[in-house]
Structures are given as structure tokens and as C-alpha cells.
Amino acid sequence: MTENQPNQEEASKSDRFFEEKQGLAEIDRKLKEVNDAREAPSKLASKIKQPPGNVLGLAMRVSVEVVSALAIGFAIGWSLDQWLDTRPWLMLVFLLIGGAAGILNVYRMASGFGYGDNYGQAEENTEDKGDLRKEE
């Protein structure tokens, strides 16, 4: 009895140690699962790139994009006219360019590349080109 006891105790101790280790591995695995699950939805970039909003919000965003580009075009043309004394021609030209830029803004916004000036698929291509350029 007296000889057995420490052995038993040791055995149970190592058992417990083993169990604990298993438990830790289990926790590790579960944590990983949870983290993966948390990361998975965030990988849906489309969700991020198109913030929720109603139709009114969309109309608002579109008009803001167009008007801001037009305003910048007008400002550039108008100040160039002041400087070069060519009123009103440059203003007209830059208003047109500003309108084009506004349409471009809207196109980028609507085509799912988010609000930024990303070129979506073109981005991947240029990455390859960039690497080539570096090699040159």
C-alpha cells in the first residue's frame, strides 16, 4: 500500500498533466476555429467595399462625386483663365474634363472597386508588370 501510493499519485499526476496538455491543445484548436470563423466573413471584401445604404444614400453619393469633380474642374479652369487671360475658354474645357472625371468617379464607385481609385482586375496585372520592371 505504502509503496503503491506514490506510484499511483505519480501516475495520476502524469495523467492529469497529459489531460491538461490535451485540454490546452483542444483550447488551441477551438481558438483557431473561432478566429478563422471571425476572419472568414471579413474576407468578403465586397461587403466592405459597398457600405450598406438605401437608394437615397446611393443617389447622394453619386451626385456628390459628380458635383465635386465638376467643382474642381471649374475652379482649375477659372483660375487658369484669370492667369492666362483666356476667359472663358479654359473654364469650358475644364468643366467638360471635370464632368468626365465625375463620371469616372461614379463608374469606379459603382463597379465595385469601392470608392478608391483601384483598378480592380487591372491591379493584379500591374503587380506582375511591377515585378518585371523591378527585374529590369
Binding site: M60, R61, V64, E65, V67, S68, A69, A71, I72, G73, I76, F94, I97, G98, A100, A101, G102, L104, N105, D117, Y119, A122, N125, T126, K129
Partner: peptide, 30 residues
């Protein structure tokens, strides 16, 4: 923009610059 023919540059660069400059306006106005 990548893959754009050279002869389009005089038209596209002003458009891109205006598009870039319009960012703070659209950001704040929104």
C-alpha cells in the same frame, strides 16, 4: 492608368488629376 495608349494621355491625365483632387471635396461634402 495601366494599359492606356500614349495618345490618350493628354486627355486622361487631366481627368485623373481632377478625379484625385475631387477626393477631399467628396469626402467632406458627403
Amino acid at each position: 492608368p495601366p494599359g492606356v495608349p500614349m495618345y490618350m494621355a493628354p486627355l486622361l491625365i487631366p481627368i485623373e488629376i481632377i478625379s484625385y483632387l475631387s477626393r477631399p471635396i467628396s469626402l467632406s461634402v458627403r
